[in-house]
Design a protein around this nucleic acid. Structure first.
Length: 768
DNA sequence: GCGATCAGGT
DNA sequence: CACACCTGATCGC
């Protein structure tokens, strides 16, 4: 083992952080860092309130991924993995404490961030170490290389067990990890809630890897036959998604070109080497790695950048280019996932590839661990656990955490609600009231809607044909001009906002359009459509293929849209930046608000500019689902793409009930679905947000108390209290809970299933 | 002058 | 709000 790093005493595997840190500091060649002012004393200053509770292990002085909140109050810092948003605050001059991390992360810290090795304590996966009296274990997180989850357990009568996942993607195999098994029933799980919303569902990584490999293989054969030179570009970032590259290299029998910086990191990770699969010689292979935003912008919805792609292609002497953008972040994922954008001799494939857990995976993990609490670490306002966001996130696990530990708080908060409302106070009533409240909220919006109608004339004048065309280029071809106009009106002419609103409710809009047309939609998907021949598509009166007549239900649409927008309204203002309304203040936005002329040169000033000029004719025929692309070979019907959308209400109902995990009666669920016109996502959003957005929780002392308890009351216990060096005895509890959990039926994928064909087999329509 | 944070681009 | 990172500008001590 590398002796560079500080390491636990090899016999007892025990560390006292203050002592080790002081000796590590002393061993540094020259440092101006002052040891904690309290010098020899073991007293530490209190933890400042600015430290987010999502980063501090309760009743300890352990900070996880919180270097920017470092201070004199601790010397025990944990780093779960090497991504900048987690190591932010670390730098060459770091000297505020010890850094506990995996061996791989340790090497990256030293080679990339120039952290002095004496300050790093390597935790080998699965090896228990005693730190300040706590048992600490790192287990793999299935995120990026070197990423781990940390398990902390204290001993004694008030023993606590905590799991901090860092960033992680759940694997079924975690169920059999002996260390994780010891943490079933833990006091809290600090959970990576990046994708904690039912609308996030994506395939296993293997499936996405297969897709990339197969596309490259096929394209290679075809290009060999045609005698073309095809460049393959795969977008990644510094650390992560290496598995795609390794599999492509192995199964396509070629090397992978990376730039020197990436090569450096890959070498540190152990993927390098002379005869490895990676090379810095661009001529050695046709598969090259690019930066992560080169091929297009992924947010708020993917917009390819063919101009940049062409630059790279020409620069490297190729005549055709195929790009892959592996991304975990997709709005209404299924529509964008496994889709491909085509233009001229370019293809860009969107590949759902996530190194975070999907919604279902998060629930599986929580169901497995069955903790007393879930502490969301992503998606909170400033890491506050008493925020609406935290409540909303925690509600997704309401049925999966330890009921007895939570029931009290839930009952108390509901009791408080019902006291205010002078109605009954059981759970069902609370939910029903939420629905009623929802109703009231919609009604309250009517004036606003009318106002919007009155304003629409003046707004109409500000909404230019150019904006309409730009928006319509981004949206599916079945979207008609009326919907586009409505979207623009409701977004105040903000094209990006309009598109975002659209994708949030795409399914609803589609059904509205479908009802109006009483006809199955057909997407144009002529792969060989000639872009040049459709220049007249620029004309304003162009009608998208699917839209034959205006929507009949536009009033409802406006209603719901306004409601959704209102819920987005209380946007947090950035602490310091006093500026710009927090719209995407970049490209798409600027084009919408500043009149872009037709005259700009060949260079792509902004992506949307580019689209406005060159994509209008072609874009509507350039988005395809995976099936559509495969239709070349499979002769599949066009309608398959939307087979998932016209599923029965029964199915949506069943899925809603599954998602809310019995937190709502069947009747209430039906009512909720009716209100949302069958939009499952919207229904789930309402269920999970309305209960917490209601002002009942605000200014509610019960809620405050609940939150305080949520993190354990044992505040600021000095760590010397755990001075006993005795090896903590692991409570061997809950082993019986490790039985297979047969009640987890994975049918809760949102209705916009990413692979309607495959999953359709698992969901026979009469199975309910 | 320094590190921390922000704006904007890749 | 949002998968990550870098660079240069600006803030604040």
């Amino acid at each position: 083992m590398a002796s560079l790093f500080s390491s636990p005493d090899s016999k007892s595997l025990s560390i006292t952080t203050s002592a080790l840190f002081l000796s590590s500091l002393a061993s540094l060649p020259s440092t101006h860092a002052q040891p904690p002012s309290t010098s020899a004393s073991t007293q530490l200053p209190p933890v400042p309130a600015s430290v987010p509770p999502t980063a501090l292990i309760p009743s300890s002085r352990f900070l996880v991924d919180a270097f920017r909140h470092a201070g004199d109050f601790t010397v025990a810092y944990f780093l779960s993995h090497f991504h900048s948003d987690h190591y932010a605050g670390l730098g060459p001059s770091w000297s505020r404490g010890l850094i506990f991390c995996s061996a791989l992360t340790a090497r990256l810290l030293v080679s990339v961030l120039s952290i002095r090795p004496q300050l790093i304590v390597v935790l080998d996966n699965g090896v228990r170490v005693t730190v300040d009296g706590w048992g600490v274990v790192a287990v793999d997180a299935n995120h990026c290389p070197g990423a781990v989850q940390f398990l902390f357990n204290s001993s004694g009568p008030n023993a606590k067990r905590y799991v901090h996942t860092g960033d992680f993607r759940y694997l079924q195999s975690m169920r059999s990890d002996p260390n994780l098994l010891e943490f079933i029933g833990a006091d809290a799980v600090f959970l990576d809630t990046t994708y904690c919303n039912p609308k996030f569902a994506f395939p296993p990584q293997e499936e996405s890897v297969d897709y990339v490999v197969n596309v490259i293989k096929r394209a290679k054969e075809e290009s060999r036959a045609a005698g073309e030179r095809v460049l393959y570009l795969i977008a990644t970032y510094v650390v992560g998604k290496e598995r795609i590259l390794l599999e492509v290299a192995q199964r396509c029998g070629c090397k992978i070109h990376v730039d020197s910086r990436k090569m450096e990191i890959l070498t540190v990770l152990g993927f390098g080497g002379e005869n490895g699969v990676f090379t810095e010689d661009a001529a050695a292979t046709d598969v090259h790695v690019t930066g992560w935003n080169i091929l297009g912008e992924t947010w708020p919805y993917f917009r390819p950048n063919f101009v940049k792609m062409k630059e790279i292609m020409v620069e490297r002497g190729y005549s055709k280019a195929v790009g892959f953008v592996p991304t975990g972040w997709m709005y209404e994922t299924k529509k964008e996932g496994f889709s491909v954008r085509l233009k001229d001799s370019f293809e860009i494939h969107l590949v759902p590839y996530s190194e975070h857990s999907s919604y279902d995976e998060l629930r599986d993990y929580v169901k497995f661990l069955h903790p007393k609490r879930v502490i969301p670490t992503v998606g909170l306002d400033g890491g506050r656990l008493d925020s609406k966001e935290a409540f909303a996130l925690q509600k997704h696990f309401a049925g999966l955490v330890d009921e007895t530990a939570n029931k009290q708080e839930f009952l108390m908060s509901f009791h408080r609600r019902s006291t205010n409302a002078t109605v009954g106070h059981d759970h069902e009533d609370a939910i029903t009231r939420c629905l009623n409240q929802q109703e009231g909220e919609e009604a309250a919006l009517l004036p606003a809607i009318n106002f919007a109608s009155e304003q629409s004339d003046s707004l109409n004048k500000r909404i230019t044909e150019e904006m309409k065309k730009e928006l319509s280029d981004f949206l599916p071809s079945w979207v008609n001009q009326d919907l586009i106009l409505d979207l623009l009106i409701n977004s105040n002419g903000d094209v990006v906002q309009a598109a975002t609103n659209f994708f949030e409710q795409e399914r609803y809009f589609f059904e509205e359009a479908n009802v109006s047309n009483s006809e199955t939609p057909k997407l144009e998907k002529n792969l060989t459509s000639d872009h040049g021949s459709s220049a007249d598509a620029n004309s304003p009166q162009e009608v998208p293929l699917f839209s034959q007549k205006p929507m009949e239900h536009s009033r409802n649409m406006v209603n719901l849209t306004a409601m959704r927008m209102k819920s987005n309204l209380p946007k947090r203002e950035r602490k310091k930046s006093s500026n710009t309304a927090n719209k995407p203040k970049k490209k798409g936005r600027s084009t919408a608000s500043s009149p872009s002329t037709e005259s700009s040169g060949g260079k792509q000033s902004t992506i949307t500019n580019y689209f406005a000029k060159t994509m209008s004719a072609a874009s509507k025929s350039e988005t395809y689902d995976k099936e559509t692309v495969d239709a070349h070979h499979n002769n599949m019907e066009n309608g398959n793409q939307f087979a998932d959308i016209v599923e029965s209400d029964e199915q949506a109902l069943s899925q809603l009930l599954h998602i809310v995990n019995g937190g709502i009666s069947r009747e209430s669920a039906i009512s909720l679905l009716e209100k949302t016109k069958g939009d499952l996502n919207l229904a789930v959003d309402i269920f999970y947000s309305k209960t917490t957005n209601s002002n009942v929780f605000e200014n509610d002392t019960v809620a405050q108390d609940t939150q305080n308890e949520m993190i354990d009351k044992c505040s600021n216990t000095d760590m010397v209290n755990n001075s006993s060096e005795a090896t903590p005895k692991m409570p061997n509890l809950f082993i019986q809970s490790c039985l297979p959990q047969t009640d987890s039926v994975n049918i809760s994928l949102p209705v916009e299933n990413y692979l309607p064909i495959e999953h359709g087999q698992q969901l026979p329509p009469d199975s309910f």
